[in-house]
Design a protein around this nucleic acid. Structure first.
Lengths: 339, 339
DNA sequence: ATCCTATGTGGTAACGTTTACATAAAACAA
DNA sequence: TTGTTTTATGTAAACGTTACCACATAGGAT
């Protein structure tokens, strides 16, 4: 073995005085290898500091033992938790996770898919807040297991809509049951499918109570704290402010809360506030934010199950549509409106 | 080409009626290829939906065009920003970034290094808040460009200590200049090198003013919001509370702020508060947090420069030690103490 | 006419694995 | 004994690239 160069299986086999095939069998526990031989090989590996070359292995086996996660913003604690859990679970099965942050841009999503093909990952978990036709088409040409975080009427892949309208529906319903009638909605970009669904959830809850979402109480901007802050500043300058605000996620709600506080409005006395995602900051904020438990970790677990049942070949049927259950977490940011 | 299988360079060459060598030259712009031939190849690629197989390419070239980022907590916005910037910059040079979240555990860091060798990444950016001898040793056996986020007295790798004691020093100095004399420190785990440096920075500033860090005003727990919250609850129950608290990072400060608020103490009127990192939440909190600008993006940019100068072979000298400049950002969470 | 250089193309040996397939000894059954 | 199964090992052909080498043609310069 040359100095400075990486040891190969051949180096090991030479030192252990066996064939490469035997070393390979030893490494993969695939086939017979004698105890004393194994000991020789172990020594040789130790001595050479040998590590398998994954690329060569993949080339032969066509299994990369990698999965890819595409998500729009790793700065969002929801996705950070998802990634961490995913990495952990994948690790247990000998897989690693390739994270691609799409910044919510379709162009970058497409780039990620290119990369994925070139690398030959075994599966994909695709989370997006928009809905690019082009991406969808590309996804279909990928002949690999895929889990998508959105529901499609015509199912092509396994879907897991942890991000649907159900959560906001529950939150809005909670507000209505508390007695609120004038409720605002602060969501993400109008074009975002996630936003559409969440808004629809809000409207549905209002509808059941014979209420409507007033046009000037519906803010569709961005899934960020900044956007929430702006919406909060805006709405609190109205002559007749709503008694409650239903936000499409927690960080928007944090922004809104900030703005209200600056305007001298108290949550929940003057105005009730709800979020969705149950991120750490929501729990520790003051008042604690009433929100929807939408755990990135829980999503990761279910997505992993779906993905691996396909990768392992255990399941090979039609696309499945799994709904991530959700529950309302009532904290101090909501109460009955003042009479 | 078989149906359902991935197209190879051979499929392309067959359809375009040229040799694989020519196709390879075309793909890599390495060598002559006639205009009309190029057109044929282009068509064939289109038709077969061909994508290069990175593993095979790597096997031959020994370049993976991947770099790895190891960091302790992607849930921390500082690291999230670092990753995003890194992915962006790397993408511009045709590289992709493999993120490994170590959860601040040495065991996982070692796993990451194993993976890195097996995959054969071209470079590593290693961020850690501890200092495992074992990891350090392992790093030295890796014959690849490495950038480390800590300063070592004996330099073995390029280092970039964006995370040093300088920031806290500036913050503490700021507090002292405002007139504070009784200052508390809330940091991370005692064993963490980062914590040690930051604490040292705090002590240094105090020392210059002839002050010391009182033992019962020094809290070393964790770099989390929860820990900050606990420390805040604790310190505010003292009979003589300090007039200022110097936190080792922003999320600790957020936790402290929460606790103080619950205890009825006003920031900064009753107590001044500083953080470090300048994360988004710090800017939007109320009052805005006085902090140290320690941008993950800036770190990423510098780390990338260091790493690529080595990967490209442009630089091959002794290890370099780069200091990330830092600046105090004064917001509303600090003011002079009440007389 | 001859030589040189620039242009264009193909053949093929690696790169480091895995995995039939072949071979052989040992263990066991009849 | 003989035949069968189990255990143990080696040989060599892929996997999809790249890059070195050889070769061929064309156009210019001498």
């Amino acid at each position: 073995m040359e100095k400075g160069k990486r040891a190969t299986i051949r180096d090991v086999s030479n030192i252990a005085k066996v064939s490469v095939a035997t070393v390979s069998r030893f490494l993969n526990s695939s086939g017979y290898v004698d105890g004393s031989t194994a000991e020789q090989i172990r020594k040789a590996i130790q001595q050479t500091n040998y590590r398998v070359n994954k690329s060569a292995k993949f080339l032969k086996t066509q299994r990369s033992n990698q999965i890819m996660l595409i998500e729009p913003d790793i700065g969002n604690p929801y996705y950070a938790e998802m990634f961490k859990t995913l990495q952990h679970l994948a690790g247990e099965r000998g897989y690693s996770v390739l994270l691609y942050d799409s910044n919510a841009e379709a162009k970058l999503e497409l780039q990620a898919l290119e990369l994925m093909e070139e690398i030959g990952v075994d599966g994909l978990i695709y989370c997006s807040i928009q809905n690019s036709e082009q991406v969808l088409e590309r996804l279909m040409t990928l002949h690999r297991p895929i889990v998508v975080s959105q529901h499609y009427d015509q199912l092509h892949f396994d879907t897991l809509h942890s991000i649907g309208g159900r959560g906001i529906y529950l939150a809005a319903k909670h507000l209505i049951e508390l007695g609120h009638r004038k409720i605002a909605y602060v969501g993400g970009p109008e074009t975002s499918t996630v936003n559409k669904r969440r808004k629809a959830g809000c409207i549905a809850a209002l509808g059941e109570a014979g209420l409507t979402l007033e046009k000037d109480l519906c803010f569709e901007m961005d899934f960020t704290m900044d956007a929430g802050y702006k919406a909060g500043m805006y709405v609190s300058s109205f002559p007749f402010i709503p008694t409650a605000i239903c936000c499409a996620n927690d960080i928007i709600a944090m922004g809104v809360m900030q703005a209200l506080r600056e305007k001298g409005l108290q949550v929940p006395r003057d105005i009730s506030l709800t979020g969705e995602d149950n991120i750490g900051f929501a729990r520790l904020s003051r008042p604690g934010l009433t929100t929807i438990n939408n755990s990135g970790g829980e999503f990761a677990r279910r997505a992993m199950d779906l993905l691996f049942s396909r990768i392992s070949g255990e399941y090979d049927g039609p696309p499945r549509d799994v709904v991530c259950p959700r529950e309302l977490i009532v904290r101090e940011s909501t109460c009955a409106p003042r009479a």
